[in-house]
Design a protein around this nucleic acid. Structure first.
Lengths: 185, 185, 185, 185
DNA sequence: AATGAATGAGTCTTCATTCAT
DNA sequence: CATGAATGAAGACTCATTCAT
């Protein structure tokens, strides 16, 4: 449990740093110092080293996003409203922090050429998000749920990139406003 | 002339590698070897080192994208058609290569926390793209050209991320199909 | 223990090299090779890098000189005799070696403009030497011990510079002879 | 003439920088920038590169010091007074500047192990200074002029080191006061 | 179950120098 | 007579990883 606790702290800290500065831009030393954990402890929890930690951190963040999307749609009366709520939730998640982090998958995507193992992770997480949105679209009776899910996913990704570039949640609010104006239920 | 030639080769090579592997993921040695240039030549062409090279490479790629977007819309009969052509152009640019590169700005965005000078570069390029799209929207008489431009920009960014993750131009083709279906604004 | 051993070896080797060739004239690689230690070990023992190593090496040599001066005066019957013994001890320390080293503080003094942290170190060591000589002067009942200490310190420094330039202990022997001739203060 | 002018400027600038930061601590680029001369001009004036420049700069500064010593003694009524005047002149030379420079020979002494050619230069300059002082001692009828000259040279060197360490002319003033108190003409 | 000591390959950068003009 | 372009070696430093305990 103390074991599990430190492991979790490592995952959360690594996720935050990777999202802010990229996989190659963060050193293990920096992660351990930020997590206030002893130097030798990383390879105990993650024998696979940096790659295994990045994999775990990305999956953890990916699950968190998926859960957040699920909640948004569960509280919504329509697929459209679910999208709006998702924008607002992502904007809210971005705003309180000093450094607006990128989509957790983006940072490890760029590490893929040197660490091929991470590519599968990234794709699985994106597929999971799209699949989750598709289930919601289906639940709300949207025509072509797969295409609606992919479309919304893409727009959220685009907003996320701009929010990261601008270090502001404005892009998410803009997307929310846009979604509200669109016809269709 | 050889001077300018080698400088350009450095920019092109760096742009390609940064887009594929991220700013921190590419070493200067790797860039010089890929460009087949001697070790000492980098700091002659770019006294500011890696940051100055990344800045130049990103601006060069940013200009290339802006020009490409301009061509797509110049050949189009409507703003919607311009967007479709842009998707197809980006998909075409992605496909022939062995490694589908990310948006050139994304890689340097993640280097921003350690290299603050690059943040302005990234934002200027994104602003330039949005402004270019807004001019086109205005030319075609779209209602609220600024919002149409930002919306399209976001969707292209989202498609680009997915294309990079999947290492395929499929996401761009998907966005093109989606745009085609939409009623004209 | 192996830890402390290697750290000490690094300090002794660095001190010898800095004294011979100056702070900027000695590379870390050269120090590690001379100490027969692996490349990565320096930053383990001295996280502050070259400056921290130079600081430690200079303080170590400074303490060694202070101790040597103390011994010379402890064995002497007068302040004057202490000065003579100090000259002889410094000459003896210079002669057996192939390269007569400079005063350990001089080398880091020249690094001070780029490494301001070393200035305090140099001044502290010089102050310590002067203070030690002043205590001895007081013990022997010399009039104005502070001035006698400073005067002797200056003359030892001057002899040290000339000994370093000539790569010979002759200057120290010369100063010893001069001190012997002087009337007691 | 413009040639000679630039050559002189190079010498003066190099001398100042070497004295402040040591031979190995100053780069050619820094010297050229400080002298506001074009990059390629150094090897035209000094085909032997950094070593030849250092040699010329040190000899130039060495001549300047010798001339200054000569003036001090020419204006003095006794050898002792000449020494006092020399202290005051060196203190005056140190004080107006932001960085009190070391004896010009010290910096190149530390480069001697890697650049053996400079050793002879250093020794020649020191010998010249001692010989000049010995001539003055002889002129004033001092007993054992050679020994008096060497003694004063050593004390000036010692004061110079302390002045450099303290970045103040105080050590020279202290030596002047000490010389004044001493008996003998 | 957990960790601090230790390391060599790698990082970006600066250096003194040469050469064609 | 003078110089800017160009470069390979070396600089200090950081990295992810291993291992004995």
């Amino acid at each position: 449990m103390s074991s599990s606790e430190n492991r979790d702290k490592l995952i959360r800290t690594a996720s935050r740093l990777f999202r802010s500065k990229g996989y190659a831009g963060v050193g293990l030393k920096e992660i351990l110092e930020a997590a206030d954990l002893p130097k030798g402890s990383l390879y105990y929890h993650f024998p696979g080293g940096k790659v295994e930690l990045a994999d775990a951190a990305t999956r953890w963040a990916g699950d968190w996003v998926a859960a957040m999307l699920g909640q948004c749609f569960d509280q919504a009366a329509s697929f459209k409203e679910g999208g709006v709520r998702a924008c607002e939730a992502l904007a809210a998640a971005a705003e309180p922090q000093s450094c607006v982090p990128a989509c957790p998958v983006v940072s490890i995507l760029q590490a893929t050429p040197s660490e091929p193992a991470l590519r599968k992770t990234a794709q699985e997480i994106y597929d999971m998000w799209t699949a989750g949105l598709a289930r919601q679209a289906e639940r709300f009776g949207v025509d072509d749920p797969q295409q609606a899910a992919l479309s919304l996913h893409m727009r959220l990704q685009g907003a996320w990139i701009l929010a990261y570039a601008q270090q502001s949640g404005a892009a998410f609010h803009h997307l929310a406003a846009e979604l509200r104006k669109e016809t269709v239920g």
